[in-house]
């Protein structure tokens, strides 16, 4: 992508990103990652479709209404929503190149994500201990696939977040890292959007019967 991007049409966008060449690359990278996220949504759509089809196939076992603890889900939702907010605060800290505040907000994001992940793993553990693991019924297979896939995304996002914190700390704010962080924040916000669909369709509609 070494197309000569010279100073034609210097708009407000350029003013915020230094040279034109870098603004150009930032847009290409962000757009490419956005397309990846949309394909991730399509993968989740497949799991949602499987869950919706199989949610009554309980094989005589317990259904959504008996299994899920809505209080736990409310806390998980709050953790993820707040971590989306702190991720936004970290993006603002990066935009003003504040090293300390970037670390503080990223740490808050990571801890909230970790709390979410721990609560989810505890829920899975309790379900499996009670004999309601993924092998119990088609409904539970679909549930563990859908919610577990989201949890795996959160775990990967957490590793990415830790890497970004270390890189920002030791390498400072260079254009490559800032681009990488743009992708991370897109990823993290997108996971929160998927969680909105999960807590509505799996947990709340499940409890509503």
């Amino acid at each position: 992508m070494s197309v000569a991007a010279t100073s034609h049409g210097a708009r407000s966008v350029d003013a915020r990103h230094g040279t034109d060449e870098l603004a150009h690359k930032r847009i290409v990278v962000g757009y490419g990652f956005w397309v990846f996220l949309l394909s991730d949504f399509i993968m989740f759509a497949g799991f949602f479709a499987a869950y919706a089809v199989l949610k009554d196939a309980t094989a005589g076992g317990p259904g959504a209404r008996e299994l899920f603890d809505i209080g736990n889900v409310a806390v998980e939702t709050l953790c993820l929503l707040l971590s989306s907010f702190t991720c936004g605060m970290a993006a603002l800290a990066v935009s003003v190149r504040s090293r300390i505040w970037t670390q503080v907000w990223l740490l808050a994001t990571g801890l909230l994500g970790l709390a979410f992940f721990a609560l989810e793993m505890r829920e899975f553990h309790e379900l499996i201990e009670a004999g309601n693991g993924p092998q119990r019924s088609a409904f539970l297979s679909a549930f563990f696939t859908l919610v577990g896939c989201h949890g795996a995304h959160i775990a990967v996002g957490g590793l990415w977040l830790g890497t970004m914190m270390a890189q920002f700390w030791f390498k400072g704010f260079n254009e490559t890292l800032i681009r990488r962080f743009l992708c991370f924040s897109l990823f993290w916000h997108a996971l929160d959007i998927v969680w909105v669909a999960i807590f509505t369709i799996v947990y709340l509609m499940g409890a509503a019967g």
Partner: peptide, 28 residues
Amino acid sequence: ETEWQGQLAPGDELPEDSGLSAGVRGYV
């Protein structure tokens, strides 16, 4: 190129939101 320059990456702060307080307000 002019057209290309006018694009925004997804997740970019919007030009009219420039400034820290405006950014914070959006997230809040």
